[in-house]
Amino acid sequence: MDKRMTESEVIAELRDGMTIGIGGWGPRRKPMSLVREILRSDLKDLTVVAYGGPEVGLLAKYGKIKKLIYGFVSLDSIPLEPHFRIARQTASIPEIVELDEGMFQWGLYAASLRLPFLPTRAGLGSDVLKYNPDIKTVKSPYADAEELVAMPALNLDVALIHMNRGDAGGNGMALGPDPFFDDLFCGAAEKAYMSVEKLVETKELLEQGPIQCLKINRSMVQGVVEAPNGAHFTECPPDYFRDEAFQKKYAATAKDEQAWDDFKKTYLDVSEADYQKAVKAND
């Protein structure tokens, strides 16, 4: 099986109005080269589903998001994503679904198991239910008769994830300290596309790390993109840590239109290869 593709071939598979899940967590192991390709595309009216980091801020800044489903949108060292903050405070994203982090996971898990919902206590009594009247409760059919949140499946059209290693068939390895929920994003999606830091031969996979790192099997993935430094400026350990200086520069663009124009011109109006060159020039 050879599922190798380029970023542009992946993004050409997407359509306006699609529901797109983006793996990783905050500013950690995000498929940024794929996100940058979306920014360069004409795609619009997307529903974005993420434990959000800079990809949400960027997609919001570009006006690509019609509906945002999230547990948080953070840059870690900058607790609130600055472009997301502006998007919220100007109500520029038409539909907002803010969930408890655990409910979010449960929605992905339900979708990946082809269930309509999974029960949980998370959300009960909080305003998550007030602002999301579509989320219903369900009564336990057993003696306890407890009223629980029926967290609906978060079904995705497409999932985009980034792994440390992978093979051409779509087996993927997360070598860092946390695999996050990327396998659930893939499971919840009709189609999943995986970028990897480095493509290796299948027989070389176990030379890369322990078998427990093989979180993604090829049945979960329709396309593989080799994208060295593809998660930049988010972290992708052990390959690299977050580029804090770059992240600061990015964050500053939320307060200064000129800085944004410069940033966009240098890093976003260019090809991925030129992005990587421009990033390297900062070193």
Partner: peptide, 20 residues
């Protein structure tokens, strides 16, 4: 909530924490 004067961290894990 629809257009906050100031967006904060978000719900994060607070609903699930407090009920669990």
């Amino acid at each position: 909530f629809k257009q906050p004067k100031s967006q904060l961290l978000g719900m994060r894990g607070a609903p699930g924490n407090t009920i669990s």
